[in-house]
Design a protein around this nucleic acid. Structure first.
Lengths: 114, 114
DNA sequence: CGTACCTTTCGACTACCATCGAAATATCGA
DNA sequence: TCGATATTTCGATGGTAGTCGAAAGGTACG
């Protein structure tokens, strides 16, 4: 279960154009993730700036670095993202307003029906 | 469909303890929302500080003020929140990784099955 | 073992955010 | 209209985030 400070940290990490692009690029790349070099070229950002933002995402628990031979891979932490979505949708539709709620519910079973 | 700058603005609005509490309090209160006075007492925050944060949430499109007689009501914009969740989960499970994806899918139909 | 490449740290600058009291503004009841 | 209550704006202050070049730190190949 996610607490407030973790949620704030995760949201703050994503609340920045460059970090949001980085995170989405990693999500789109799949579980293997990407190296800082590839990300730097892909997003056209200086390595030092990228490193700064990757560190921010890692500190928030949204990505994790993994050594892979000579290269480093940053992988998206989808479990953390899922917990964040759960926190944001908590208590929705509880005040007798389920019929008018605009939040689409999330399935408990993960990807089972795909 | 949500674009990057809207997503960043929404995330930034939520990436602050007081604003996150305010938003969650409004979500929990249901579509009718709450007045600044009630929120100020509920969250134990000075009116001026609360107003500052409500304005931030409103500018991000996450809440909307509605005059209701002599009182003002701030209502949560659940449609905007739903769009944000959609933006954050976009492109998940697309890189041949559906079986290992930790993001629970969201139902297209809103609250139909409840 | 040394060289080359990849990645991070450091330093400095600019800009914006959070906080709150005091004062101004707005709305309604009498 | 007048007064009371509710809400916002203003001003000042302290703190934190984003940017990038230059230099340092690691890692693997030859």
């Amino acid at each position: 279960m996610m607490d407030e400070s973790t949620a704030v940290a995760s949201l703050a990490a994503l609340a920045q154009p460059m970090r949001l692009r980085v995170f989405r690029a990693l999500v789109g790349a799949g579980p293997a993730g990407l190296t800082p070099g590839v990300l730097s070229a892909l997003l056209d950002v200086p390595p030092s700036t990228l490193s700064f933002h990757l560190k921010g995402l890692a500190r928030a628990g949204l990505v994790a670095p993994v050594r892979e031979g000579r290269h480093l891979h940053y992988r998206p932490a989808l479990g953390q993202m899922d917990a964040l979505l759960g926190y944001l949708t908590d208590h929705c539709c509880e005040a007798g307003a389920a019929e008018g709620c605009a939040i689409r519910p999330r399935e408990p079973a993960c990807c089972d029906t795909r």
